[in-house]
């Protein structure tokens, strides 16, 4: 088993969530997904990120907002999961419930040292 990080972008489009029931139902889909991964021992951890981070760069260490400030690029959180290989990690990421809400998932393998 290898470790993979799923990085979740976007998926927070306000207009698409017109009612509390709709939001709760969407959250329930995430919980169902996590439960499925847990049952197969594939879920290691997950954390949400507070919106609005800083980007530091250059030799003068300039600090700006970012790197993403635009809704659908902003990283909302991440999972650490177990998967046999990249193919399996990608298949897992395809189950993310956010695609219909302008979400996208970045899959990165965690380097073994």
């Amino acid at each position: 088993m290898e470790k993979y990080m799923l990085i979740f972008h976007g998926g927070n489009t306000q207009e698409l969530f017109s009612s509390p029931e709709l939001m709760q139902a969407h959250m329930a889909k995430w919980f169902a997904w996590i439960d499925k991964l847990k049952q197969k021992d594939l879920y290691i951890s997950g954390e949400p990120l507070v919106p609005g981070g800083k980007l530091i760069q250059g030799t003068n260490k300039s600090v700006t907002d970012g790197p993403y400030t635009e809704g659908k690029d902003v990283v909302g959180g991440f999972f650490l999961i177990n998967a046999k290989n990249m193919e399996e990690a990608v298949e897992i990421a395809k189950d993310c419930p956010d695609y219909q809400y302008e979400g996208s998932v970045q899959v990165r393998q965690v380097m073994k040292m």
Binding site: F8, G11, N12, Q14, F17, P20, M23, Q24, H26, M27, W30, F31, I34, S45, G46, E47, P48, G76, G77, F78, F79
Partner: peptide
Amino acid sequence: VQDTLLKAMNTWKFNG
């Protein structure tokens, strides 16, 4: 309220 619930959903969905 809409904003608050959206924030909750986007936070809670990752770990409960």
